[in-house]
Computed example of a mutant assay.
Amino acid sequence: MSPRAYQAMLDTQDSLNQGWREAQIKNDNLADEVARLKADTASLGRKLASLEENLSSSSSEAQKLAADLAEREDRLKEVEEVLRKRDEASNALKEKLQRALLGFEESGLSVDMKDGKVYVSLTDKLLFPSGSIVIDERGKQALIELAKVLNTQPEISIAVEGHTDDQRVRSLGQIKDNWDLSVLRSTSVVRFLTQEQEIDPIRLTATGKGEFTPIDTADTPEARSMNRRIEIVLSPKLDELYQLVK
């Protein structure tokens, strides 16, 4: 073989070797790219699966929340309807009492409504002689008219609250202080309503609050007169409402 032919063969071999090396590099690069693509694909697959799981979970949670919200809205409507009926009943009762007790307003009687309850407030001068727990005749007449209405409303609960002013009570036999006076006046009214007017005793409660819930805190005779009172609080029974909010 001539030197020229031999050199040509070497040049060809070098060229082939160089091409193989370049091809190998490209192949290695492609393998690396394939590995990266596979890794990326696997990672994306996991992310997609996680996303789908989260979406499914979120969708399920959203559906549950929507169902809970709908249930609460229905419950709210029921409660609002019961309260509406309560207020209607209380308003009707208030109007009946105002008509029945119209003649006693100038003597210190008032009828008001608050928070679904009717408050009949009677000053002590309408019911009792000064320092006494014995109901006078004018007070009895007011309670008789009140009882006529209450006996037609058996679903109404009745709380009788005694209140005094903040002046210390001088010892009056069994009456030791304002607590005693407020309680004993309250029980006098309850006793009259149950024993004389035959209102079912199970409907009534008697409490004494002394001087601690005044209407007017001013240090004047007028304010103290307003604070000395019996409040008869009338509440429609809310059995239906209590069942709803259990």
Rank of each mutant, 00 (worst) to 15 (best):
T194P: 02
E198V: 04
S121Q: 04
E231Q: 13
D200L: 10
M9A: 10
G173T: 01
E231S: 08
Q18V: 13
G173I: 06
K26Q: 08
E73I: 12
E211D: 12
L37K: 09
D14T: 10
A39F: 06
N91V: 09
V233D: 01
A147G: 02
M9I: 08
E95W: 07
Q153A: 13
G19N: 11
S130V: 12
N29D: 15
E240I: 07
P201R: 13
A218E: 07
V190E: 03
T205P: 03
V160D: 00
F104P: 05
K47T: 08
Q63K: 15
V118D: 01
I232Y: 00
R99K: 11
K77F: 12
D74N: 12
E105H: 15
E145V: 01
E240C: 11
S60R: 11
I175F: 04
R72G: 15
H163V: 02
T187R: 15
M1H: 13
G45Q: 07
G139F: 00
S107E: 14
M1A: 05
T194L: 02
Q7P: 05
G45P: 13
D14A: 03
P3T: 12
V120G: 01
K125L: 05
E71K: 08
E33M: 07
A159P: 07
F212A: 11
K85F: 14
A92G: 09
Q167S: 08
L30V: 03
G162H: 00
P129Q: 06
S15D: 05
T12S: 12
E198F: 15
L69R: 07
V118Y: 02
L76M: 14
Q174S: 14
Q18K: 05
S56K: 11
R203V: 07
N54E: 13
R203W: 04
N29C: 09
S110Y: 00
A92C: 08
K140H: 06
D112Y: 12
L44E: 15
L122Q: 00
M113A: 11
T123K: 10
E73D: 02
L102N: 08
